[in-house]
Amino acid sequence: MYYVAGALLGLSGLFYSASHNEIGSFGATVCIYGSAFCDNPIYVIAGAGLAAAWGMFVSVR
């Protein structure tokens, strides 16, 4: 789950950058397909936090 949390954190950065037009034409393409996430990248960050919390909850050590 930590890998999923890391991937979601990376995606939230991608959506944030795309919404602020920092990555050029690729950002426009990203926002076409993920407009809800470009408008509110906090949704993806919240998912990353939940995945990390779930990973900590179910980890066996």
Results as ranks from 00 to 15, higher is better:
Met1Gly: 03
Met1Leu: 09
Met1Lys: 11
Tyr3His: 14
Val4Asn: 02
Val4Glu: 02
Val4Lys: 08
Val4His: 02
Ala5Thr: 05
Gly6Trp: 05
Ala7Leu: 14
Ala7Glu: 11
Ala7Phe: 13
Leu8His: 01
Leu9Gly: 07
Leu9Tyr: 08
Gly10Thr: 11
Gly10Glu: 01
Gly10Ser: 09
Leu11Ser: 12
Ser12Pro: 04
Leu14Asn: 00
Leu14Gln: 06
Leu14Tyr: 00
Phe15His: 05
Tyr16Asn: 08
Ser17Pro: 06
Ser17Tyr: 12
Ser17Gly: 09
Ala18Tyr: 02
Ala18Val: 05
Ala18Phe: 04
Ala18Ile: 00
Ser19Met: 08
Ser19Phe: 08
Asn21Leu: 09
Asn21His: 14
Asn21Cys: 01
Glu22Phe: 01
Glu22Gln: 09
Ile23Asn: 03
Ile23Pro: 06
Ile23Gln: 03
Gly24Trp: 14
Ser25Ala: 12
Ser25Val: 11
Phe26Asn: 06
Phe26Asp: 06
Gly27Met: 05
Gly27Leu: 07
Gly27Phe: 02
Ala28Glu: 14
Ala28Gly: 12
Ala28Phe: 03
Thr29Ile: 13
Val30Ile: 14
Val30Arg: 04
Cys31Asn: 03
Tyr33Met: 10
Tyr33Gln: 07
Tyr33Arg: 00
Gly34Glu: 02
Gly34His: 07
Ser35His: 01
Ser35Ile: 09
Ala36Lys: 02
Ala36Thr: 10
Phe37Glu: 06
Phe37Leu: 15
Cys38Ile: 05
Asp39Val: 14
Asp39Phe: 07
Asp39Cys: 07
Asp39Thr: 15
Asp39Leu: 11
Asn40His: 14
Pro41Gln: 04
Ile42Phe: 11
Tyr43Cys: 10
Val44Asn: 03
Val44His: 04
Ile45Leu: 15
Ile45Gln: 13
Ala46Pro: 00
Ala46His: 00
Ala46Ser: 11
Gly47Ile: 05
Gly47His: 05
Gly47Cys: 03
Gly47Met: 07
Gly47Arg: 02
Ala48Arg: 01
Ala48Asn: 01
Gly49Arg: 00
Ala51Ser: 12
Ala51Glu: 05
Ala51Phe: 03
Ala52Asp: 02
Ala53Lys: 08
Trp54Tyr: 12
Trp54Gly: 10
Gly55Glu: 00
Gly55Val: 02
Met56Thr: 07
Phe57Pro: 04
Phe57His: 10
Phe57Tyr: 13
Phe57Met: 09
Phe57Thr: 09
Phe57Ile: 08
Val58Met: 12
Val58His: 14
Val58Lys: 15
Val58Ser: 12
Val58Arg: 15
Ser59Gln: 13
Ser59Cys: 09
Val60Tyr: 13
Arg61Met: 11
